[in-house]
């Protein structure tokens, strides 16, 4: 079984609203996939079903062949998955170093965790502010700290929810490099709005619309597809 993530008939309903509607999805080992779609298309809900933050109302999620449907987030994370959420989710009261170290410490011992943390700090250019409290940092820096948390866990599957949101053009470029580097070791799913960013990193793109997968193809085909344009411009219902 070579696919690392697979969903079969995944459905998520909130009251009367079906946010994710019977989605079949596959991700291969070391693949990089972007999920795009207009607001309310169900990308983020789909994402949260994968991470365990939401319990799907129907269907199944398989991660590395294991049926993880309905698992708690920490059990899913323990499979070796790094998650970055939409709003930078970091521990404001702790230092940059502690944030990253804690992530490495869960899977590795004290010594190795220290090395992994140092490594992540260096790769992300956070060395100079390692001892600062995260709450005092800028938005872009906090984004990087969260990436450091993801990186330090040495994941083989990375889920990123809008990593480029609110970043400057320069920071987006740097983010693309980091993602490419992570991709050497791990399969990656990215939920993203920023087309520039997507073009710079993606090969295959999955487009969500109204809770379903509209199209799944390589990035250029998708960008030129009429249906996709309609969805984004709101022509079609």
């Amino acid at each position: 079984m070579s696919s690392v993530v697979e969903t079969r008939g995944l459905t998520m309903q909130f009251g009367g609203v079906t946010a994710v509607d019977n989605v079949d999805f596959r991700l291969e080992r070391k693949e990089l996939r972007c999920l795009i779609g207009p607001n309310g298309a169900g990308k983020s809900t789909f994402f949260k079903c994968l991470t365990g933050q939401l319990k799907p109302s129907g269907g199944h999620v398989f991660i590395d062949g294991e049926d993880t449907t309905g698992w708690d987030p920490h059990w899913i994370a323990r499979l070796g998955i790094g998650v970055k959420t939409q709003v930078p989710s970091v521990m404001d009261g702790l230092s940059v170093r502690e944030n990253i170290w804690l992530s490495a410490y869960r899977t590795h011992g004290r010594q190795k965790a220290r090395r992994l943390a140092d490594d992540a700090l260096e790769r992300l250019g956070l060395g100079a502010i390692a001892k600062s409290q995260v709450g005092r940092l800028s938005h872009g820096e906090r984004q990087r700290v969260e990436l450091g948390i993801v990186m330090a866990g040495e994941p083989w599957l990375v889920l990123l929810d809008e990593p480029a949101a609110g970043m400057t053009a320069e920071e987006v470029g740097r983010m693309a490099e980091i993602v490419a580097e992570l991709n050497r070791e791990a399969a990656i799913i990215i939920v993203e709005h920023d087309m520039q960013f997507i073009r710079s990193i993606a090969r295959t793109v999955t487009v969500f619309s109204q809770g379903r997968i509209l199209i799944e193809d390589d990035v250029d085909t998708v960008m030129n597809d009429q249906a996709v344009r309609d969805v984004y411009l709101g022509k079609k219902a």
Partner: peptide
Amino acid sequence: RIAVAIRENEQRVELMGYDV
């Protein structure tokens, strides 16, 4: 440290794989 991290951001700690 993990306890403080939970105080700061429970969801993050959970996504790191700790049983909060």
